[in-house]
Computed example of a mutant assay.
Amino acid sequence: MSQQRHGSTPGNAGAVPAFPDLPEATIARLPEYLRALHHLAETGADTISSEGLAAAAGVNSAKLRKDLSHLGSYGTRGVGYDVALLVDQIEYILGLDQRRAVCLVGVGNLGHALAGYAGFASRGFRIVALFDADPARVGEQINGLTVRHFDELPRVAAAEALAIGVIATPANAAQAVADGLVAAGVTSILNFAPCVLSVPPGVDVRKVDLAIELQILSFHEHRKASLTALPGGRENAGGQEAVGS
C-alpha cells in the first residue's frame, strides 16, 4: 500500500485523519524517526526500508511500522518509505511546520549553552527571547539575542506569541519562573531544573534531569559489575574456578 499525505480526504484507503490520536509511546519515538530521516535526506537517500529506518532510529522494525501506520504511512512493498514525504508527515504531526517561538529563562552555564545551540532552528524552533533575573546577566548578547530581565516576559510573550518556555534556572527559582510563564500564556514548558513543577491543567511539562539520567546509568554499571562477580560470570569465564569454591 502506498503512503498517503497528511490531510488526505477521510475515507480514502490509508488516508491520514486530520489529526490522529497517537499513543504516547509513538509520540516519543517520532522525533527519533525524524532525526534519522533528516540524516538520510542529507546523505541523498530518497527511500528507506522499514528495517533500515528502524536500525537508524534504534527500534525494531515491527514497532516502527506500527507507529507509522498511525500516520497513514505504510510504505511501498519492495521500495520502502519515501524519505521526503515521511519527513513532511512527521513534521506536520509534531507541529514543526509552524516554527514555534521559544523563550529561555536562566542563562547560567546550562542556559548559555542552550541559547547558543544552533540545532533548534533546523528542527522547527525559533529561540526568540532570553530572560534572567540577575542584573549582571541582563544586556548580555548570546547568539544574536539580548538577555532581558524576567519582568519583561509578559510583554515579550504577547509580542512574540511564545509557545514554549525553557527553564534552566536553579531549582529554588524554577516554580516562580513556571508561574510567570503560565501567567504570560505559555502552555508548554521544558524544565531542566532538578525539581517537580506544579502547573494548572492544560499546561504540559517535560522534565530533563541530567543527574537522574546519570544515576540510571550508574544502576546499569552496578548491575553489570554484580553480574560479573557472580559464579559463572565473566570474571570466571574460561573454565576458571570461582574463588572459595
Rank of each mutant, 00 (worst) to 15 (best):
E152P: 00
Y92V: 00
H70C: 08
Q141T: 14
L145H: 12
K224R: 15
H70I: 05
A28S: 11
V102D: 08
L114W: 15
V182W: 00
P194F: 09
G52T: 09
V87T: 12
L153I: 08
G124V: 05
R148F: 13
N12M: 14
A113F: 13
G124M: 09
S69T: 15
A101R: 15
V138M: 00
A113M: 13
N12T: 15
G244M: 11
N236I: 13
A229K: 01
G180P: 14
G180N: 06
V186R: 06
A163W: 06
A55Y: 09
S2L: 08
L37Y: 07
D46Q: 12
A168L: 05
G78V: 11
K207V: 11
E160S: 14
V177L: 07
F150G: 11
D204V: 07
L68F: 02
E42L: 03
L85R: 10
F131T: 08
V59P: 00
A157Q: 10
Q98R: 15
H112Q: 11
E32D: 10
L210E: 08
S122A: 04
F120K: 11
T169R: 03
A211F: 13
V166R: 13
Q3C: 15
Q215C: 04
L114E: 09
P23Y: 12
P17T: 14
R126K: 10
G124S: 13
S245R: 10
I127C: 06
E24C: 05
C103M: 04
S188L: 06
V177S: 12
T146R: 10
A129C: 02
S73G: 01
G180E: 07
S61P: 00
G7V: 06
V205T: 00
T9I: 11
A36D: 10
L94K: 07
E235A: 05
S122F: 01
T43I: 01
A54K: 12
S61M: 01
T26A: 15
V208C: 07
A118Q: 13
G165I: 00
A56C: 14
D82V: 02
L145Y: 05
